[in-house]
Amino acid sequence: MLDDFLIRALIAGLGLVLATGTLGSFVVWRRMAYFGDSTSHAAILGVALSFAFSLPFYAGTMAVAVAMALLVAWLTGRGQSADTVLGVIAHTALAAGLVAVSFVPSLRVNLESYLFGDILAVTKADLVWIWIGAAAVLGLMLWRWQRLVTASVNEELALASGINPETERLILSLALAIVVAIAIRIVGALLISALLVIPAAAARGLARTPEQMAGSATFIGAISVCGGLWGSLRFDTPAGPSIIVISAAIYALTLVFYGKE
């Protein structure tokens, strides 16, 4: 069954949305969309470095993504305006990544598959990485759930309850870096943020509690993956962008039907 590339693509996509639905909700609640961009753009640099130094792909990408997440957290913690820091870092990371790629001839050829993903080309080894990464992220968030939600509602309330908001922010940064590393083969570095933000934004209109929103976002993500893959086969469109287009269409529908609060 796993020999069918479409089944592999489906399993890869569904594994990924298991993590992005919940993490994406936090990204929306905490306005971390731009933060997701800088982390995922940095992943291109990670890909280039992994290839240049023959490092394991996932480990190398994840390490650079983690480093970038920590750098951003450190800079904003020093009182730099988050918007400016992220604006500088997101695009610098992408530019530096593209420059680095030019030194790696083997990568120049299929750069596009890292920018926009190539879900139809995932291997069985990719599947293992994707599911381990997604399970780790989901497990991490479920374990810290009450703390993460409290810190996202209000940092002072969290502090007064003995929760350190810095710790919870760091945990989300780490989760984001893992998701970026496993998502790059599926939707590509440029569209990871979209997969985080759009299903969660669509779920907002349907949900009354944080738990409902995370659940709905996961479900909408899963529908987007199935719909995107189907559309990609049917109309011969690129799979990653097709997944995002479907989720955006669902978002538009929720605006029409539930947006009138």
Partner: peptide, 22 residues
């Protein structure tokens, strides 16, 4: 605390809010 601002993006019922963090 002073000026608690709940992000509109976060759905939250009063009941759920009372259960944070315990």
């Amino acid at each position: 605390p002073q000026r608690v601002h709940i992000e509109r993006a976060m759905p939250m019922t009063v009941r759920r809010f009372l259960s944070l963090p315990l």
